[in-house]
Design a protein around this nucleic acid. Structure first.
Lengths: 199, 199, 199, 199
DNA sequence: AATGAATGAGCCTTCATTCAT
DNA sequence: AATGAATGAAGGCTCATTCAT
């Protein structure tokens, strides 16, 4: 009874909860999960330390909420793109577009991405959410392909792997760490390979 | 002056330093950097808390040493494989072999890999070491290709990207998280793509 | 950002802060600065260890507050005496009175005096406060003399030196360490000398 | 048996013990007793950490030895001056000379003086040594006066008090902390007062 | 619902002292 | 006598969480 986390009904409360999540999002991005303390989150959210525990079970619970926000941010653009897809699919246009989207997403969420991913290993729930995210996207794309009557052998493997490659490349591209790499050249390689996967 | 770290010359001492690193390696793997405390490291290493600071500047310094060990473990098998390479290179054999090695390495160092990578974002030195590792491997492979008279356009980009793909796939393979994925099928995809990169 | 020290506004809090300072005062007196630990201060103040750091930046910050209290204790009686001074000044009364006050002050603050003075050498801020205290008293007395139309050659040097002598004697008197010394005789010597300074 | 402190007979040993004391002297001067650790003392003395405990019971024991050295340094010049004294004593020469000596001693031992004095309050043995030092000087001077047939009323009080004044002034003079003070003027005040004490 | 003061366990690190060699 | 590695208790400080109001 005592430890139940408040389910905010009032608008005011919902907004307050969101402010806490937003503050967590920012701080986890800036200094990581372990570099952030709850007092700081509360201050940034403009609420008291105590009330944070009215909305969240504990610090980790904030993390989970932040993760959900993050996932939505990453998820939605892709889903919307696929929703709008109609036959015939022009892969010469689609693939570069997806890659550009991935890069953009990565750029905007670089730090939080790292902060969250870094916990995927040690925190089961965080890890599970990431897996679920991948599953969701993979399956939804496959479904869409079905609807469009687009037949691919080993579709799930290909989609998933394409996602992996794009993910990996976006990371490289955004971090831009190796001087000797021409990232434009690399990008073209990715485009070709992904196109090749779907013939 | 006061913070000088002991440089162990004696066998006995070197062994003790290694025991501490090993303990750190294990604990960071098991519960992550933030889940580990120095007392625990000392206990697991069979030494006193105090002496840890005789061998290391601070807790983070242990992390750096663990990182070095990890990098060597990952690095060496690949380098040795490339050292033994002679013309003509049979990519049909080499690529699968490299992928198998990557999988094996990943399997053996799964947890520490995550623990260390999770710090790459927040700890500059850790991040820098990972970048240096990638640079090293990429450049050494390119050099080897040169020696073998094997000419590739955009060699560095291809090598680096191949590494990325293999890394990414090994991760997938080892974690084996998605039931709907046939990882053998996926592996063949990777082999084909990497082979395709180098014709 | 993270290290902001709580500024207690409520009565309750101010009282708590004062209790911590008082506890510090006592303990520094009893066992010195280095003989005191923060947990002990907290316990004696009847608060938790943590909250001490809500009111003070660190242990040294407590010391500074203790020092302020001490200085006020020492400072005020003298100032009040000089404030009440009117022409003509009867030095035959004033000097013995000041010496008695100095002795009393010394007696009441013997241990903390030592504890604090002992840090004046190694802690710049503590040293500076002691100097400022001397400056303050010297200058205020000189000013008062001016107001009273009392002209003295080398007033500042004389006032300061008189203070030194009185200080030094009070110390002797309170500690009463040498059996062969008749402190009453010595006191009369001090009275005569100080009177002689101001004719 | 085990805890007996070695009484060094060999020259080598005595020299080593002295080196440790000298190192302690320097370090206590530079960073105070609590700012010094035994490892540092050993290093500066060019000996091993362990052997320090062959010559001294504990860290405080080094302090006591340092104190003895210090006392000798301060004591001897004054004694030698008084030893050479013959009738008739020219106080117009003697007093300024003593004050100059006191200033010089203070200047040369400023830091260690503070470091040691700061412990007199908390460490009984240290305090006792300082008292004994004062007793020694006072009594020896009184005795000398006797030998010289120089009769003074309340000799002990006067001598002791003169010492106090000179001490106090030397401190002021050496630290030179107050801009508004002309220390030459002050010095003349001291000379006059001390001379006045002994007619 | 909200505040923010308060709690106290826990962490990293230092260092006087001991001990194996 | 000597070394310096090793010990482990202790200390300053942080912070997730609770509680009085």
């Amino acid at each position: 009874m005592k430890n139940l986390v408040r389910q905010p009904r009032q608008e005011r409360s919902i907004e307050k909860k969101n402010r806490i999540i937003a503050a967590g999002y920012e701080l986890f991005s800036e200094v990581g999960y372990y570099g952030t303390n709850t007092a700081e989150i509360a201050k940034r959210a403009g609420v008291s330390t105590g009330i944070v525990y009215g909305y969240f079970q504990d610090k980790r619970d904030i993390l989970i909420s932040v993760l959900e926000i993050y996932i939505t941010k990453v998820f939605d653009p892709f889903l919307r793109t696929f929703d709008k897809l109609t036959t015939p699919v022009d892969f010469d246009v689609l693939i570069p577009k997806l890659i550009d989207m991935a890069i953009k997403t990565h750029k905007n969420n670089r730090k939080i991405h790292e902060a969250l991913h870094s916990l995927a290993g040690s925190d089961e729930a965080v890890g599970a959410q990431f897996i679920a995210l991948e599953d969701d996207i993979t399956l939804k794309i496959a479904e869409k392909f079905n609807h469009l009557g687009f037949e691919v052998e080993n579709a799930l493997e290909k989609i998933h792997f394409a996602m992996d490659i794009i993910q990996s490349f976006s990371h490289e591209y955004v971090f831009d760490k190796h001087d000797y790499i021409d990232y434009i050249v690399m990008k073209n390689m990715v485009v070709d390979i992904v196109k090749g996967l779907f013939k």
